[in-house]
Design a protein around this nucleic acid. Structure first.
Length: 698
DNA sequence: TTCTTAATGG
């Protein structure tokens, strides 16, 4: 009790400062305080501000012309934290120079200056640390920490825990761990703060090893510890559920599994380990669920590519009376983006507008991506323009959109705009930019940006940047330069690098270099069917059927399976899938009849089936028959049967569209007066009035 | 004083 009183009146404590300010104000009112000495008031203001800002106007200090007194170095109390220690020292110097006058207040002031030690009190330190935590200012946190080390409350455990947490939130786990090691005493909060630090900053292994150590110190985890540990268990490089299961047992034993935080973390952990069934069981068993629990489950299905399931859960969540959050919308838009289901995405978008959720980058980026990936680049741009705050991901998403739609000029313009605004590009930005240059035949621009990336932005190109450069050079027909470029790469070329060269060789019919590139690709990744198929097709279309057969045999022997080609088309909120020569579809007969009719009609206006893309069909007529039933053709016939005249048709494909289909779709777009948008593995084709946006360059 | 959920590439 006595100690408490002493502490309350100690110098630096709020009461102490308040008293000083009152005294100073009264001196000032009686004209005893000379003008220079008002600097002293500023010093007190610094301290006072953080204790009770609301009380300031009542003592009239705000009316002081502080900046006039302090010259250009004047610092408003608000910016104390961000300006740091230098200014405090500066103010001290000012104080020393204060009061050369000989007023009767001299003694009083001298006394005050001496007593105005900068030692902070506990409340002030907590507030300062809090502010550092919120704004992530590590440097200031270290200064406050230094003050605390020389203070009388240095052996205080809670304040050390707060510092540790501040370091964590400022992103410096080194500082946090160092403090942890130096601390004379640690409690559960200390351990938990460090564990959660590693887990939040994506260093799961380091979080997990702390757990057994903590147990050895005789501490039992609580809900905070367990949820952090579960997050770490689900985030491992190769998330296995060994840690997860042990933790689950621990949660169960201590009865924490019914806690919302721990329960939700369990749902999330199993979902990240790919065990959706167990995730669902835990979710169902939760007495108390919140939005986060739903989001974790929905995101889990979305990540696993179970889009339909995720959407069903979304509707269920709504029916259950839960309000979707940014996270929910974000997952749902991602699902719609990868399925190319724009109609459902639009519906959810309108739902989001009605619910009043702001179009911030967090959710806007995924919405933008959804429109771009569904083929509507105009809607994507609208979303981009309306975003409340654009971040690097917003720009990257928009750049990706442009580049996939073959809009090279727009990509370059947006990139330049981004630089003007002062947003730092990252490696993904450059990947989009280079891809755009490649797709739009912007050879010089592509090479220029590749150098710029290194020189001006100090971003070391990753293997994917090299792949794109090989693609850029190769597409432009500079096959030898592309080959040389690969040989001069500072990093080892991967199968994808050689694959890019192979693709270019196919485009420019260079079989020898193509065969060489394919060999390298086989060596580096024998399990990818792509290069085998391309090479075999190249041989086949050059009439070298024996060589084609050899490649095919090689592929068979290495046990590679060709991924079946399929196409998807969305009709009235349902996505329909087609495989080549589909014979299981309920509307099969109509679809085939439809295509035969179309085929006949477009042949009359000039369509010539190109059979060079088909392997091993000796007889010309048979070749043509097989060719007719590529999945995108079936999807197109189906869409023509089931949509109203004039409406846009959007088709998604899992491999690159073949030359014959590309040609056929061009004719169909003209004849049927339809806009047809085909999304293949690396770009969009907008067919309109007989031509394609890719300019037959893909 | 300590806790859970999303997004951009090929």
């Amino acid at each position: 009790m006595i100690r408490k009183q002493r502490e309350r009146g100690r110098k630096g404590s709020p009461i102490h400062i308040r008293g000083h300010i009152r005294l100073l104000v009264s001196l000032m009112k009686r004209q005893i305080l000379c003008s220079q000495s008002k600097a002293l008031l500023l010093l007190y203001l610094y301290k006072y501000k953080y204790n009770n800002a609301a009380a300031l106007p009542s003592v009239g200090i705000r009316k002081l012309p502080l900046s006039a007194q302090m010259g250009s170095s004047a610092t408003p109390a608000d910016s104390y934290i961000s300006e740091g220690e230098d200014h405090i020292i500066q103010d001290k110097d000012l104080l020393r120079r204060t009061d050369s006058g000989t007023t009767g207040s001299l003694h009083v002031l001298e006394d005050l200056v001496n007593r105005a030690s900068l030692e902070a009190d506990r409340t002030l330190c907590n507030k300062l640390l809090n502010k550092c935590t919120q704004s992530g200012q590590l440097k200031q946190a270290r200064i406050v920490h230094a003050h605390i080390l020389t203070s009388t409350f240095n052996d205080d455990l809670p304040i050390h825990n707060t510092i540790l947490n501040t370091y964590v939130k400022c992103g410096s786990l080194d500082d946090a761990h160092k403090l942890f090691d130096e601390m004379p005493h640690r409690d559960l909060v200390t351990w938990t703060a460090l564990i959660s630090g590693y887990s939040q900053h994506d260093r799961p292994e380091e979080a997990l090893v702390l757990f057994p150590q903590m147990l050895r110190h005789g501490l039992q985890p609580n809900q905070f510890t367990l949820s952090s540990l579960l997050k770490a268990a689900g985030a491992g490089p190769d998330p296995d559920d060994k840690h997860g299961r042990q933790l689950h047992a621990h949660c169960f034993k201590c009865g924490f599994d019914s806690n919302v935080y721990v329960g939700t973390s369990l749902v999330d952990m199993y979902a990240r380990c790919g065990r959706m069934d167990e995730s669902q069981i835990i979710f169902d068993a939760l007495d108390t669920k919140n939005e986060v629990s739903w989001n974790a489950l929905i995101a889990g299905h979305a990540r696993k590519g179970q889009g339909e399931h995720a959407l069903r859960l979304f509707w269920k969540m709504l029916r259950g009376g839960f309000n979707p959050t940014h996270f929910t919308y974000s997952s749902v838009f991602t699902v719609c983006a990868s399925a190319g289901s724009m109609e459902q995405g639009k519906w959810v978008h309108s739902h989001m507008i009605k619910s009043g959720v702001n179009l911030v980058a967090f959710v806007g980026n995924t919405l933008l991506d959804m429109y771009a990936k569904s083929g509507s680049i105009d809607d994507a741009k609208k979303v981009f323009d309306r975003l409340v705050r654009r971040d690097i991901v917003s720009f990257n998403s928009m750049l990706t959109g442009y580049s996939q739609h073959g809009l090279g000029k727009e990509t370059v313009q947006l990139f330049e705009q981004m630089l003007r605004i002062g947003i730092q590009p990252n490696d993904i930005t450059f990947l989009c930019l280079l891809t755009a240059c490649s797709h739009a035949r912007l050879l010089d621009e592509g090479q220029y940006y590749f150098h710029l990336m290194r020189k001006r932005f100090k971003i070391e190109p990753q293997v994917w940047h090299y792949v794109t450069m090989v693609d850029l050079l190769g597409r432009a027909g500079l096959l030898d330069r592309a080959d040389k470029f690969i040989r001069e790469m500072p990093i080892e070329p991967t199968a994808a690098v050689w694959g890019a060269l192979l693709g270019a060789c196919r485009m420019h019919n260079n079989i020898d270099l193509g065969a060489y590139a394919a060999e390298r690709a086989f060596e580096l990744d024998p399990y990818d069917s792509g290069p085998y198929i391309i090479l075999a097709n190249m041989y086949a279309s050059a009439g070298r059927l024996n060589d084609a057969a050899k490649v095919r045999k090689m592929m068979k022997e290495s046990g590679v399976k060709k991924e079946p080609a399929c196409s998807w088309v969305e009709i009235e909120n349902a996505v329909h899938m087609f495989v080549a020569n589909d014979d299981a579809h309920p509307q099969r007969a109509e679809i085939y009849r439809m295509w035969e009719m179309i085929s006949k009609k477009i042949k009359e206006v000039g369509y010539v089936p190109d059979t060079s893309h088909v392997l091993f069909f000796v007889d010309q007529q048979e070749r043509e028959v097989k060719l007719q039933f590529h999945s995108e053709k079936l999807a197109l016939a189906f869409a023509l049967l089931n949509t109203s005249p004039g409406s846009t048709i959007r088709i998604k494909k899992n491999i690159r569209v073949c030359g014959d289909c590309h040609s056929a779709i061009k004719y169909v777009s003209k004849m049927e007066r339809r806009e047809i948008i085909v999304r293949d593995t690396n770009r969009f084709h907008h067919f309109r009035d007989g031509s394609c946006s890719c300019g037959d360059y893909w």
